[in-house]
């Protein structure tokens, strides 16, 4: 799937969910009209966006929180799947954009995709999430399927993990700054807490 098309579908079905993006998905998300409950986690500590999302989901149980990360980011914080499943937030959806590479650094393959090439065994992040105890997991490989499932995955009782197979971007792949982080997080926190 094309990353931008996947994100456009997410943008179309999203209503009042808190939505965190990072790295490549954060770069592309900035092409859409911003929403007050968007938080582009750039600059980030790689692999921590889903953990920020978990904290928000715990603090704001009446809101749906959707955290987006890449497969490289998930590999960097694989234990977060266990942490999330242990907390078991019903209001949490994790979307993993799996392109098999570290896209923003130029497309180097991840250790997980190296395993796929070496022994022909794909690391199943959705299966991993299921084994960890996520309530609902899916791997989605076509845009049609994603368009059919997206709304449900944002509404189902969590924790939900959907792994979306996307093609790596080979042009304009760098991280894009959404602006000054301290000011943005203050504004985001105020929005969350005022209307939460």
């Amino acid at each position: 799937m094309d990353l931008l098309s996947v994100l456009r579908t997410l943008h179309d079905v999203r209503t009042d969910e808190v939505l965190l993006t990072s790295m490549g998905n954060g770069r592309e998300w900035q092409q859409f009209e911003p929403h007050p409950l968007d938080f582009v986690h750039v600059p980030s500590s790689m692999g921590q966006t889903q953990s920020w999302g978990l904290g928000i989901a715990i603090a704001q149980p009446s809101r749906r929180v959707v955290a987006c990360c890449g497969d490289g980011s998930l590999l960097m914080n694989l234990g977060s799947l266990v942490t999330i499943a242990n907390v078991a937030p019903a209001n949490f959806t994790l979307l993993v954009f799996d392109n098999g590479v570290y896209e923003v650094t130029g497309g180097q393959s991840t250790p997980a995709s190296n395993i796929d090439q070496l022994i022909g065994q794909q690391i199943g992040f959705a299966r991993l999430a299921e084994e960890c105890g996520f309530r609902h997991t899916e791997r989605i490989t076509t845009l049609d399927e994603w368009q059919r499932r997206a709304e449900t995955l944002l509404k189902s009782v969590g924790p939900v993990c959907a792994v979306l197979e996307v093609a790596p971007q080979t042009k304009d792949y760098s991280v894009r700054s959404p602006g000054r982080p301290k000011e943005r997080v203050r504004e985001f926190a105020a929005t969350l807490q005022e209307s939460g």
Partner: peptide
């Protein structure tokens, strides 16, 4: 960080 941003 997420907890703090969420008001905890």
């Amino acid at each position: 960080a997420g907890l703090h941003v969420g008001g905890a």
